[in-house]
Design a protein around this nucleic acid. Structure first.
Lengths: 259, 259
DNA sequence: CGGTCAATTGAATAGAGTCAAGCGTAGTGG
DNA sequence: CCACTACGCTTGACTCTATTCAATTGACCG
């Protein structure tokens, strides 16, 4: 399934499969559509942990397809404190929200070493013209991310720190299950407690205390950049959220004709 | 500019203009596009204050175009407490996020008496096929709402109640300025303090205290379902957010040809 | 082997929640 | 026209979650 020009050092077969997996999470892609997507790819860009994938200053001219590694959108408020608004995993498209704004309100930072593909916005525009079904799939994925943000917003507003942390762990493990085969009770966790705190709106000190509580309750434990889920049912109960169930849309436009 | 079939009791000229205004906030619409939108309209539905425009149970088969009145998305957590995740004003499309989920995680409630137009999802799908430019405009508006949600998420996570309330007032007044001509320093405020609290993740009691502080600081005051902004600069300073600046995209697809 | 960063723990403080009571106003029905 | 009711607003007292500050330990890297 490797396309011509896709055999870069960091954007090879396995990674590309992940991207296709993500894009086809609502409906299988036609061969022509896979080819159409491959045609959009630019050259990959490699970033170190902590680097800015997208700045908050620059007028956005490109989107970024995350090929490898984790990233997060960060909003910095007037008083300097930082909130991470979402975590992006391989296969995610970065920068879509910023299309609506003259200058983005968020920056995207690499949480791990990361590889991105820069895609000019005109390419997305062209995709809307010649591949309405792909456009709608991207639209749907974007809506799903929005639902994800809405849930986190609700948790931030109403739930206590322990619940928020449990929900974050649960949702992250569900998302990772998308592109790893097995349901992982051992998931990689490259985030520091500071970053976890920035995600759930809590100080790093308190994150530590909540992790301690969850560990002593036998729910999860963290060690060596790995999160171990010991009791998934208990975790779901702590989080108080129901399972994430993507829609199975029957009303998508028909697949584009080849050529 | 009234289209045939648009002269309903509650969906007449002025309201329809608002909808067009909202949809053309990123780029002016061609005549054919206005006609294309008018062709999507169903029959209007009138709802009382507090009524559910969209439930959290039903599998979504329709979108809802808000013609008149205010609405809000509400997420109810396991412990029964409620978070309002966004406020919708006339011209907004309701239900787009739910397209991604098998069952929606949020309900949409009318904050005032409201009028909506139900639109089957297939109509949106068709719009992606035959009007890529309109589809992308809806995509952009949806992204703008997502940025709005991200900002509120950041405020919920990092800012104190007073800042959150100030930011909410500021953004609401900016949004209302979109479809009212003058910059309004007297804006209608149909929300109760309980609802304001559900929006900014604070108890109604504390909302009251924060309003009192803002009033005594000479920033805003509330009376008779009306918010008066006495010192807009001070309000912006309290909120600590910069002005909302929509993008002016040059990379949209070309307007659809008539016919 | 020192240096930096992350994790961990404790103590003092503050922001916000909860509970409870009183008040103002608008609507309703006799 | 008045009384009753309901709802939202307002205020005070007490509690608790989470923050901030500070100090210590542990792990990894040059």
């Amino acid at each position: 399934m490797t396309m011509p020009g896709s055999d870069h050092a960091h954007a090879g077969g396995a990674q590309r499969t992940r991207v296709i997996t993500r894009l086809s999470s609502f409906a299988p892609l036609a061969e022509a559509e896979v080819a159409r997507l491959a045609a959009m790819s630019g050259s990959p860009r490699l970033l170190k942990r902590g680097a800015h994938i997208r700045g908050a200053d620059e007028t956005p001219t490109h989107l970024n397809l995350l090929i490898e590694g984790w990233a997060a959108s960060a909003i910095t408020l007037a008083d300097g404190c930082r909130q991470l608004t979402m975590v992006s995993l391989p296969g995610d498209m970065l920068g879509l929200p910023s299309l609506a704004m003259r200058e983005p309100i968020d920056a995207v930072v690499a949480l791990t070493p990361a590889v991105v593909l820069d895609i000019p916005v005109e390419a997305l525009s062209q995709l809307f013209v010649d591949s309405p079904r792909l456009a709608m799939l991207i639209f749907l994925i974007s809506q799903e991310e929005r639902v994800f943000a809405m849930e986190r917003l609700a948790l931030l507003g109403q739930a206590k720190a322990r619940v928020r942390l449990a929900a974050l762990f649960l949702r992250l493990s569900e998302r990772i299950a998308q592109f790893e085969q097995m349901v992982p009770d051992q998931i990689p966790m490259p985030l520091t407690q500071q970053e976890l705190g920035d995600l759930i709106g809590v100080s790093a000190v308190h994150v530590n205390a909540m992790i301690k509580q969850l560990r002593e309750a036998g729910v999860v434990s963290m060690a060596a950049r790995t999160l171990s889920i010991h009791d998934r049912a208990a975790l779901a109960k702590e989080a108080g959220v129901s399972r994430w169930r993507r829609s199975d849309p029957s009303w998508l436009p028909p697949a584009a004709q080849p050529g």
